[in-house]
């Protein structure tokens, strides 16, 4: 906003100051967070059932932190999500650039084929992966993170197309004259990528990696069919656990995870701002 505009009570583009938009988003965030707040509150409930409040306790936190398999599955799931996000972002990025930059025969087919992992019912893909890893005699590893390799591979397969779709949506808006200008000035492909394209798609990269991360963290069916005795994961543990109803232990564990995320993002943002100040 320029100075002149800020004198006017609300500039034409200050959508964040429109009243109904504000109220709408407040309601949106309340609804979005209601279940989360509910589970945080009930993680302190002194009852195995999440139904009536029976007094405050932290015993489920103690239990969750003492539950060896729960912690192991937590670490496994986070590792899977982290590694598969990194790899699928890289693969997705290269595929998106390729599809955006080049014309080639069979391009439409490649394009459509990238949609199939999104369309396919999860269980069908899970079974496909199960048969595949069985018939190629995928080796059994007991070493971290190789013990997670099957799950990671399957997760990359269904999540990198998401990255492609999001990055391409963003690239669709890239002003091609920028690239021509860069080339006219003698920049190589790499320089153009590094200084023109990359900064432009950076938000899409971040956004899509956030999405793939939660996709991976949430996936149950495909993970179930690709896991074995050496790689228990959180969703598999949780799906089996809730057979007896959701125990506050799970709520406690989820709360801890949310707190870790909040604290680490706050720290990262602080750190980034600090760096910027230094500059």
């Amino acid at each position: 906003m320029t100075k002149k505009q800020s004198i006017i009570r609300r500039g034409p583009l200050e959508y964040s100051k429109i009243k109904w938009l504000k109220y709408f988003s407040v309601v949106f965030f309340i609804v979005l967070y209601a279940p989360i707040i509910n589970l945080i509150i009930f993680s302190f409930n002194d009852s195995r059932l999440n139904i009536v409040w029976r007094g405050f306790t932290i015993k489920y936190y103690v239990k969750a932190l003492q539950n060896e398999t729960l912690i192991l599955s937590f670490i496994n799931s986070l590792s899977i999500a982290f590694i598969s996000t990194m790899i699928s972002t890289l693969i997705g990025l290269s595929a998106a650039i390729c599809l955006w930059k080049f014309n080639f025969r069979l391009k439409t087919y490649y394009d459509l084929s990238l949609l199939v992992p999104i369309i396919i019912p999860e269980i069908c893909m899970g079974v496909a992966m199960l048969i595949f890893f069985n018939s190629v005699h995928w080796p059994v590893f007991t070493i971290w993170p190789l013990n997670l390799s099957e799950i990671i591979i399957a997760h990359i397969s269904f999540s990198f197309p998401f990255v492609v779709i999001i990055i391409r949506a963003r690239l669709g808006n890239l002003n091609k004259s920028l690239i021509e200008a860069s080339k006219d000035l003698g920049a190589t492909e790499w320089i153009t990528f590094r200084y023109v394209i990359f900064p432009f798609i950076k938000p899409a990269l971040i956004a899509s990696s956030l999405l793939t991360f939660i996709l991976s963290l949430d996936d149950f069916i495909i993970t179930f069919f690709t896991s074995g005795p050496n790689n228990i994961t959180l969703p598999v543990k949780i799906y089996s656990m809730v057979r007896f109803g959701v125990s506050p232990e799970i709520n406690a564990a989820s709360t801890i995870l949310i707190m870790i995320v909040i604290i680490s993002t706050v720290l990262i943002i602080k750190f980034l701002n600090y760096e910027k100040d230094l500059k």
Binding site: T69, V127, L130, F224, F225, S227, G228, P229, N230, I232, V236, K237, Y239, S240, M241, V242, R243
Partner: peptide
């Protein structure tokens, strides 16, 4: 080492 299933169909599959 313990691993879990949620129903018999899963175990069988």
């Amino acid at each position: 080492k313990i691993d879990f299933f949620a129903d018999n169909d899963e175990l069988f599959a």
